[in-house]
């Protein structure tokens, strides 16, 4: 009560002023035809606008939920594909043919920063070691490959983009099966170079370039892009192939991090060889 009195002592005149103005404006809009009409009109517009933004917000939330659900659904389907499974088959006519194990699993992630300018581009994802992301995991989007995880923190991970001068990714021509190495010359964000395809291979414009599956980072047969042009400039025994990327890294939003379930065995083998 004391506080209330003090409030009135301090701001009483202002409150009275506000009250009288409010009263006057209520009178204005209730008893003047013209001002009343303008008021009704504006009020209707304001409420309509508010309703609209509320609807929009609700839709966005619904879309977000739907997005997460669809990501999960995509992963479930991708993990059932042949290229995501390890086959134990040794002879085609045995029952072992159906015995497969999960080889690749996927972790959904959102891109929170990205760059395609310069020659050393990185992107950052909102998933990290807490969600199972480790360095040297491949990253793909629904349109193609994106890059390789370089570093992780509990909540975030840093991905070396395909658009990096040090990118070396094994890729194959899907029609002929010859494989080479994808690199980027730093010029065009949609064009990569496929090197080390031998001269005797048959190459045509429009050939599909896919992941070779030799790197343990990406499942075999993921589409990367198409051959845009090729020549032998430089005079070597290998093609210079320009590959048009399928996915536009300039507008990347949702990606999947690929986990190779058998990475430990590969590591053991690597160590055994190096000893």
């Amino acid at each position: 009560m004391r506080g209330l009195l003090q409030l009135f002592a301090a701001y009483g005149n202002f409150l009275l002023f506000g009250f009288l103005e409010l009263l006057a404006l209520i009178l204005v809009v209730s008893f003047n035809q013209r001002q009343g009409a303008i008021w009704d009109n504006s009020w209707g517009m304001a409420t309509a606008m508010f309703d609209q933004s509320a609807d929009w917000l609700g839709e966005q939330w619904a879309l977000r939920d739907e997005m997460i659900k669809l990501q999960g659904e995509n992963i479930r389907l991708m993990e059932q594909l042949d290229n995501a499974r390890y086959s134990n088959a040794v002879r085609q006519d045995t029952f072992l043919r159906d015995s497969t194990e999960q080889l690749f699993t996927y972790i959904p992630a959102n891109v929170i920063s990205n760059s395609t300018i310069g020659t050393a581009n990185y992107l950052r994802l909102d998933k990290g070691s807490n969600h199972g992301v480790r360095p040297n995991m491949g990253v793909i989007s629904s349109d193609g490959i994106v890059g390789v995880v370089r570093a992780v923190t509990p909540h975030y991970s840093q991905v070396m983009s395909l658009l990096h001068r040090e990118t070396r990714i094994k890729a194959a021509l899907s029609r002929s099966g010859y494989f080479g190495t994808l690199t980027w010359n730093g010029k065009n964000a949609r064009l990569m170079q496929l090197e080390a395809i031998p001269k005797h291979a048959v190459v045509a414009e429009g050939d599909t370039v896919v992941t070779s599956g030799y790197s343990q980072l990406f499942p075999q047969g993921l589409a990367v892009g198409t051959v845009k042009s090729f020549d032998f400039s430089g005079g070597g025994n290998f093609y210079n192939i320009q590959v048009m990327l399928r996915n536009d890294l300039n507008k990347l939003r949702y990606v999947y991090v690929i986990e190779n379930e058998m990475w430990k065995e590969h590591k053991e083998l690597d160590e055994a060889v190096n000893e």
């Binding site: 009288l20 009263l23 204005v28």
Partner: peptide
């Protein structure tokens, strides 16, 4: 002053047949 300006405004509004318009201005 505030109460008198509101009263004055309302009184003029009676003649102008515009309830509240003069009152709002004069109160300000």
């Amino acid at each position: 002053v505030l109460l008198l300006s509101f009263l004055m405004g309302i009184s003029v509004d009676l003649f102008y047949d515009s309830p509240g318009v003069h009152a709002a201005a004069l109160t300000a």
